[in-house]
């Protein structure tokens, strides 16, 4: 990618649910699947799809395990994800400042 266009936003994050996931994880660092589902008011299927997109981009790491006998999916933000989120916010802020 040559030249960085401040008006163009990272597609991997650009979407209400994916932005919500990234924002929440930027603060919490890690969250359970059900916790994300609750705070973002998302359905299970929808959240799974968007988490997979973020995982493919390398922005989150999904760890599946068990808590007792119940399956537990935990999502962690990666350093690359944190950087991408910071840059996304930078672009978004620049856009608001430049055009307002």
């Amino acid at each position: 990618m040559s030249g960085f266009d401040v008006n163009r936003l990272d597609d991997a994050i650009h979407g209400r649910l994916r932005l919500g996931i990234m924002a929440y994880l930027a603060d919490a660092e890690a969250a359970d699947f059900n916790e994300l589902k609750g705070v973002l008011e998302a359905t299970q299927g929808n959240l799974s799809v968007h988490l997979s997109k973020l995982e493919d981009a390398g922005y989150v790491e999904i760890i599946k395990g068990y808590q007792g006998k119940k399956p537990l999916t935990r999502v962690h933000i990666t350093p690359a994800g944190r950087q991408a989120f910071a840059r996304y916010i930078e672009v978004l802020s620049g856009l608001v400042e430049k055009r307002s």
Binding site: L9, D11, H14, L19, G20, A23, I89, V96, R99
Partner: peptide, 22 residues
């Protein structure tokens, strides 16, 4: 990374408000 989407300032403002609220 593919940084393909444009957005308008109004949508950007709302995105920032959404993050803060979250």
């Amino acid at each position: 990374v593919d940084t393909g989407s444009d957005t308008d300032p109004q949508a950007a403002r709302e995105a920032l408000a959404f993050i803060k609220a979250l």
